[in-house]
Design a protein around this nucleic acid. Structure first.
Lengths: 151, 151
DNA sequence: CTTTGTGCAAATACTTTGCACGTAG
DNA sequence: CTACGTGCAAAGTATTTGCACAAAG
């Protein structure tokens, strides 16, 4: 887990101990593209680390979010979803199947930086999200024709 | 509650009945700038409508969100927060006091529309959010090393 | 008159916490 | 060695649901 060194340093700088469980969660998030929930992380990890606990996953995610190594995506679902990729990127939420995809939005940074200057507030972070139906759901034409779409 | 007519029509178009409770919640949200939680709405409304129930508030908010008359803001807090203003605008979340403010971001629509065209997905809605410390919190405590120290 | 919504309370589900043991520093 | 982290189970807490009555269309 050499690639985790910068993260380890971040933990140390914030005064947190570097534990096996924390590294495992970090490593998991670095390799996941699924924007998993705490429970998903737990279910996947407990196969290799059977004694890990869900409470530790939650504690770890909360801590990692606090130090900025993980993002809480604010998904419109029951469970919270997390992202280990903290670089500038946007998200697309499929309101049909719940999938979350990374999405590249050129030109956003410029707009965001303008806001950071113009506002009286101190802005730490921005997020830009899109909601709709993913390519799969759109092509499957799965009429979940509930009252899904406004307008 | 004359101003609610377009909303009433929306309910009817979706086949929902127009009830006193639904109008009251809609009216409340139209007049609120606080981006309230379900419980806040409940607490405020039960003074004037003592028999209204929290479950109804939740059911109503869920339905109004589904038909696009209310936004679920995806706030980084325990409770969900809602907005009755569905026109294009962004939000600022104070990570210190929890306040949510409307914020005007010029030029965003252009970027968002570009994404709507470029992507293979079907996009219904976008959101642009900012996180940081509001003017009040910022002035009260000039220390902007926002990350709280571990326990 | 039929269907949908409401209020209440109980249930559910996600997340957090208390405590004793284990482990990093 | 000492403080902090972990695992477990138990507790919270926001939100949803079942049901009988009420109200809308």
């Amino acid at each position: 887990m050499k690639h985790l060194e910068p993260y380890i340093n971040r933990l140390k700088n914030f005064g947190y101990k570097v534990t096996h469980q924390r590294l495992v969660v970090l490593d998991y998030l670095q390799h996941s593209k699924e924007h998993p929930s705490a429970e998903t992380i737990y279910n996947d990890l407990k196969e290799r680390y059977p004694t890990i606990s869900l409470a530790t996953i939650y504690n770890t995610l909360e801590m990692l979010t606090r130090v900025g190594l993980v993002l809480d995506l604010g998904a419109p679902e029951e469970r919270r979803r997390f992202d280990g990729n903290t670089s500038d990127h946007s998200h697309f939420f499929c309101t049909n199947c719940g999938k979350i995809e990374d999405i590249v939005v050129p030109g956003v940074e410029k707009v965001m930086n303008k806001v950071k200057q113009d506002t009286s507030r101190h802005i730490d972070r921005c997020r830009l999200d899109f909601f709709g139906r993913c390519a799969v759901c759109e092509s499957e034409n799965n009429n979940h024709s509930d009252k899904q779409r406004p307008d």
